[in-house]
Design a protein around this nucleic acid. Sequence first.
DNA 1: TTGGAATTACGAAAGAATTCGTAGATATTC
DNA 2: GAATATCTACGAATTCTTTCGTAATTCCAA
Lengths: 129, 129
Amino acid sequence: MKKKKNNTPTDSELEILHVLWENGPSTVRFVNDHLNKKKEVGYTTTLKFMQIMTDKLLVRRNTESRTHIYEALVSESDTQSKLLTGFLESTFGGSAMKLVMQALGSHKASKQELDELKELINNIEKNQK
Amino acid sequence: MKKKKNNTPTDSELEILHVLWENGPSTVRFVNDHLNKKKEVGYTTTLKFMQIMTDKLLVRRNTESRTHIYEALVSESDTQSKLLTGFLESTFGGSAMKLVMQALGSHKASKQELDELKELINNIEKNQK
DNA sequence: TTGGAATTACGAAAGAATTCGTAGATATTC
DNA sequence: GAATATCTACGAATTCTTTCGTAATTCCAA
């Protein structure tokens, strides 16, 4: 029986993943500096998280040089998709439409974004036929 | 200085709120029975949460009879909106459109739902002009 | 080469969320 | 009215997450 891997990151882990997704493989120092633009975080705190994430297989690291290089092992869209599914379930009873309506209703979208959205809807409808 | 009320429920609290939103004012027994349809939860566990939620002003209770009646003090849509904003920020970097695209892409929507959605988009565009 | 700076490993404290046991009070049943 | 069931209050254990201090090692600069 294969062990079910629990790949979903916690909030703090997610912040680190964002840095890795955006900047590619990075050192703890680099990630920590980035995080500190938003809020103060100790270096060893960031280090600890990245070690935990290595255990969880959210990232892997190259340890050839003394300063390790960390790389995301999970993709941004996969992770977003998983988190979205969980959020959808817990908050909107699993109804994606309710969530979409709520999101569109309370968060501004530009003309261009709305056009893209309509385009997407058209494609979905086309494939449904 | 007024104290900032942190009204956002935790996951367990949210499950209880769903029961209250759906069924109206309820006893601990009723809520606990409902929760147990999905997963095993001890009675005093549910009770404890509802007491905590009373402190947090997420619910209020009528204590006239020995068996207290609990009632949601926060609305479903307000709560969803708050949780959505947080989730949007942490997972999608604040981009509602990315979330909407992801949600529509990976979760099925019916013809009717898509029509409603287009209707909503039209209204938004109309108001933007 | 020696002392300071940077890095990793590790443990553990602190905080937050969840879960439940027990005690005491009140209601119900036989 | 005695035994049983139900309910609230409360504290505390447990688990998960976050945060950091310290030690050991390696690198670098004067």
